[in-house]
Amino acid sequence: MNNAGITSPTRFLDVTPAEWDRILDVNVRGSFLVTHRVAAGMAERGFGRIVFLSPVSAERGGGVFGGVAYSAAKAALLGFAKALACELGASGVTVNSVAPGLIDTDITQGKLDEERRAAMIADVPVCRIGAVEDVADIIAFLARPESGYLTGATYDVNGGSHIH
């Protein structure tokens, strides 16, 4: 489960090369290093489940709090997962992504005011913020041995706020 990452609300015209590199290093290189470490063993055993967490901002180019560097890094993970699914599928290893929308965590570190939060929830067709369990349930489903025919897909967990 590739779930580590950092965000940055810095606008593209204001982002420095150092900030860009920091965001991509943690989000993309970090996922590469962890996945690279475990994938060979999974392929040798003939079984494995890899899941990338890549929020909705990767699909729509922006999100609740992440700027362009964050969205670009998370979009790179979607491509990484698809390519890896093609490469590892014959070895019994599946690779999928989960793209959550607004979930009840504090990724914004308290910087999302209540008025904006309420407006965002009002735009969600199911009329609520997502729970951590909403995301955990799909990850657990994808990790099951019985989910061996599901690979290379992105599963949206956003209450309908990003229908494409």
Rank of each mutant, 00 (worst) to 15 (best):
A85R: 04
V56D: 14
D25W: 07
G30A: 08
A122D: 02
V95A: 02
A119R: 12
H36A: 08
A153Y: 03
I50E: 05
A40M: 05
T7P: 13
T35E: 09
A90E: 14
K111S: 15
V126P: 00
V38T: 13
R116Q: 10
S57Q: 14
V135W: 06
H36Y: 10
D106A: 04
V157L: 04
A122L: 00
V124K: 01
H36W: 08
V38C: 13
F47N: 04
S54W: 09
V95K: 07
Y149S: 01
A99M: 00
S71N: 11
G152Y: 03
S147F: 06
A58W: 10
A153N: 08
F47L: 07
G79M: 03
D113I: 05
L33A: 13
R116T: 12
I6R: 12
E87H: 08
F32Q: 02
R37D: 08
G148M: 01
R22Q: 05
T151K: 03
A75G: 14
I103E: 02
T151W: 01
S54Y: 06
V126N: 00
S8T: 10
V51T: 11
T7Y: 15
N2T: 13
A83D: 06
C127V: 00
V64M: 14
I107F: 15
A122V: 00
D113N: 14
G48Y: 06
G160A: 02
G63P: 12
L150K: 00
Y149I: 01
V93R: 07
P145I: 00
V157W: 07
A83C: 10
A73N: 11
G63I: 11
P145V: 07
G63R: 09
C127G: 00
I103V: 14
G5F: 13
L24V: 11
S147C: 06
T7E: 15
K74G: 09
R128P: 05
L13A: 13
V126D: 00
F65D: 06
I138E: 11
R22C: 00
A69R: 03
I163M: 15
L112Y: 00
G89I: 05
G48W: 08
L102G: 02
S31T: 12
E146W: 04
G5H: 12
V157S: 03
G41L: 14
R128H: 04
L84C: 09
V98K: 05
G79R: 02
V135Y: 04
T108A: 15
M42L: 15
I107M: 15
P125C: 01
E87M: 01
R60I: 14
G62H: 14
A18C: 03
A75P: 10
K74R: 13
R37G: 02
F80W: 06
A18V: 01
G79N: 09
T94Q: 11
V51Q: 10
F52A: 07
A40K: 15
M1A: 14
I138G: 07
N3E: 01
I163D: 05
V98L: 08
R29G: 12
A153S: 12
G30Y: 11
A153L: 04
A118F: 02
L24S: 08
D106F: 07
A131G: 04
A39E: 09
H164Y: 10
H162L: 12
R49S: 11
T16D: 09
G66Q: 12
D123G: 11
D113Y: 03
I138S: 09
I103C: 09
G159N: 05
A85Y: 04
G61W: 15
V64L: 15
I103P: 05
A136P: 11
G152L: 03
V34G: 15
P17Q: 10
